[in-house]
Design a binder for these strands. Structure first.
Length: 624
RNA sequence: GGUCCGAUAGCUCAGUCGGUAGAGCAAAUGGCUUUUAACCAUUGGGUCGAAGGUUCGAGUCCUUCUCGGAUCACCA
């Protein structure tokens, strides 16, 4: 592996070379081109009224704008304020001496012996006005201003779009009514060697957006026009959602904890882990796939309400909805059951969504309104029936009278029908799941007459099923449960657009969940679906150590049977439960997916600052 | 892994039927002391993702490969 030259990283071309030359000329002019600090502040009558760390461009602009607005109200496009109003505004504004620093958000607009440019702190921008005869430069080696006439103007001429400078001067309003800083001293702070992203389009290639996130974020503050959230705003919204959730949990008596990221056993969820090795201990460790079992150990230990908001790692495929590391909020509350947890989670999500959106419970996702003000609750079977009937109506036939899928015969009938109607049979989509039922796709490839014939045949199959099914055996029952879940995924999942808790999961696929007191085959478990995405998963936690032991042993058997994602037995967890865990409910909430919904993003990589990508490869390098 | 789409100047993109490589922005030089996607004039800037093929001639057609995106299958 060869170490690249600086020039291979900052490749010389006409853009970078021009900037590099400017940097050298600046060095001759003012010395150190990367000084260590700049003191920002706002003064009135020699008194500091906004101190250094608070004197951001955003804060200064928000401080000064109301003063301007007192005299000059919002003007229509192209109209200028009267001299009288402007003089009044300036009389007040001129008394503030300000020192601000930021990045040149636009290329300098030079007009002979004066120039305008906007400085940005990433959020807001403030215009500065530099007049040749009024401005002095700062020597960065001595810290003193350079008295020589024209030095500041020369310095200004060597600035490029994207450079950082600090300026001192006074506030005023221009002829066109824009709040500005009349610059008296100018200090160079840092150079942008690369040209800034396109001011109209930003960075449009999604790969470059993610790979060079810093440049994408710069583009957020430079872009002139935009119709959706900038990248910066996406991540600000993400931060607000997360802080809203933390606040809600803290206010409700939860304590935030951190449990191991590197664990000797990958448990708590059904997933493949990343494996690593600890040299000193001489053991293999797994990046955690879920913090669940650790958090429940803490409820054993007496933390009645705990939460952890952090990363999980799963060594699985990447997709729009899947990143190898993703952020999950998990929390557990003693003495609560699944119903109490749904109430609580709903309240928490509502409040934090409002914090993130600035008050609204409605968001636009992909042209569709998603309404967080109402969370429906529906059993899995009812969801299947509801959405199956919708398909059925589209089909224009009404012979299916499914009740509530409460017998294996009904489930088997529906499943057989779907398998029969599958488009894969006519070899339209070779890779398609054979049980996938896509009516629109089917219509594309078979005409109406053929469709009618198929439906007729399906009808025969439908009624032939009952003879084959032997009810009331445990084997039939287990496959019945699995079929229900499968049907749910095929028929209903993608149609669950508005927030909905799906309840009554089969116990067999919920090894950490308690059974319902009403039905021993049903787990007290829910999943929250929004826009067809699973966003949360919770249940009444199983706290009987003996039963938990047996359920995990069953999982181990499935693992031996080839299910790589079945859970493994964690002996210490069983021991912990044996110390006694109070009845409790828990939930895991996929933060990235919620953020996607709140920011109208279709890819999880757009809501993760640095998503995992293939490494950059230079020409000539080969794949290993 | 399958299918579809894409890769042209530093950036965003055009490029007709196969016939001299284009625009805007950015850059360089000059002008302009209240502009704001500043403006005016001039100039430079290209291995058209890579390799091979067809052709008198390829950015354009064909084959293979690389990278990326979308989508399907697995998964939260």
């Amino acid at each position: 592996m060869s170490i690249p030259e600086f020039n291979e990283i900052v490749e010389p071309n006409d853009q970078t070379e021009a900037r590099r030359e400017h940097l050298e000329r600046l060095r001759d002019l003012i010395g150190n081109v990367y000084p260590n600090k700049y003191r920002r502040e706002v003064l009135q009558d020699g008194q500091v009224i906004i101190p250094d760390q608070k004197a951001t461009i955003t804060n200064v602009a928000r401080f000064a704008r109301p003063i301007k607005d007192k005299h000059i109200s919002e003007l229509p496009e192209g109209e200028k304020p009267s001299d009288e109003h402007r003089d009044a505004a300036n009389a007040e504004l001129n008394q503030y001496r300000i020192r601000i620093a930021g990045r040149l958000a636009v290329p300098p607009r030079v007009m002979g012996k004066a120039a305008f440019v906007h400085l940005s702190d990433g959020i807001e921008r403030l215009q500065i006005y530099v007049r040749k005869q009024d401005a002095k430069a700062v020597n960065n080696d001595t810290g003193e201003t350079i008295d020589e006439e024209g030095t500041a103007w020369e310095l200004f001429g060597l600035l490029d779009h994207g450079d950082f400078i600090g300026v001192e001067g006074f506030l005023f309003v221009t002829k066109t009514g824009e709040l500005s800083v009349h610059v008296e001293t100018i200090q160079f702070l840092s150079k942008a060697m690369f040209p800034m992203p396109d001011k109209m389009h930003g960075i449009s290639d999604p790969e470059l957006q993610r790979r060079f996130r810093y440049a994408d974020l710069i583009a957020s503050s430079l872009q002139v026009e935009r119709d959706d959230l900038t990248t910066r705003e996406v991540f600000e919204r993400r931060a607000k959602l997360i802080s809203g959730m933390r606040r809600f949990l803290d206010d409700n008596g939860f304590i935030e904890v951190e449990t191991p990221m590197l664990t000797p056993k990958a448990t708590g969820a059904a997933a493949k882990p990343f494996k690593t090795h600890h040299n000193a201990l001489g053991i293999d460790l797994y990046a955690r796939i879920a913090p669940e079992l650790y958090l429940k150990r803490l409820t054993v230990g007496g933390f009645e309400k705990v939460y952890e908001l952090n990363r999980n790692f799963r060594n699985e495929g990447l997709s729009q909805k899947h990143n190898p590391e993703f952020t999950m909020l998990e929390f557990y509350a003693a003495y609560m059951d699944v119903n109490g947890m749904m109430d609580f989670a709903e309240a928490m999500i509502k409040e934090s969504v409002q914090k993130a959106t600035g008050g609204s419970l409605q968001v636009n996702y992909d042209g569709r309104a998603i309404d967080f003000s109402k969370f429906e609750r529906l059993t899995m079977k009812k969801a299947i029936v509801r959405h199956w009937r919708e398909e059925n109506r589209q089909l224009g036939n009404e012979f299916f009278e499914i009740q509530w899928l409460d017998s294996p015969v009904q489930v088997a009938r529906l499943r057989r029908f779907l398998a029969y109607m599958s488009v894969a049979e006519v070899e339209y989509v070779q890779s398609a799941n054979p049980t996938r039922y896509i009516i629109e796709d089917a219509k594309k490839i078979i005409d109406e007459k053929a469709m009618e014939a198929r439906i007729k045949e399906a009808k025969n199959i439908w009624f032939s099923v009952s003879d084959e099914i032997q009810e009331n055996t445990s084997e039939v029952f287990e496959s019945f449960e699995k079929n229900v879940v499968e049907l749910f995924e095929i028929v209903a999942e993608e149609k669950l657009i508005q927030p909905i808790f799906i309840i009554d999961y089969p116990k067999s696929i919920s090894p950490l969940s308690k059974a319902s007191p009403e039905n021993p085959n049903v787990a007290e478990r829910f999943e929250l679906f929004i826009n067809g995405m699973e966003c949360a998963n919770g249940f009444s936690e199983l706290n009987d150590p003996q039963e938990q032991y047996e359920r995990l042993i069953d999982q181990m058997k499935e693992r031996e049977g080839g299910d790589e994602e079945a859970m493994v037995l964690d002996e210490d967890y069983i021991r912990a439960l044996a110390y006694g865990m109070p009845p409790a409910a828990g939930i895991g909430i996929g933060i990235d997916r919620l953020v996607m919904l709140l920011t109208n993003k279709h890819s999880i990589r757009d809501v993760i600052l640095f998503p995992h990508m293939r490494p950059e490869r230079k020409e000539g390098e080969t794949v290993e």
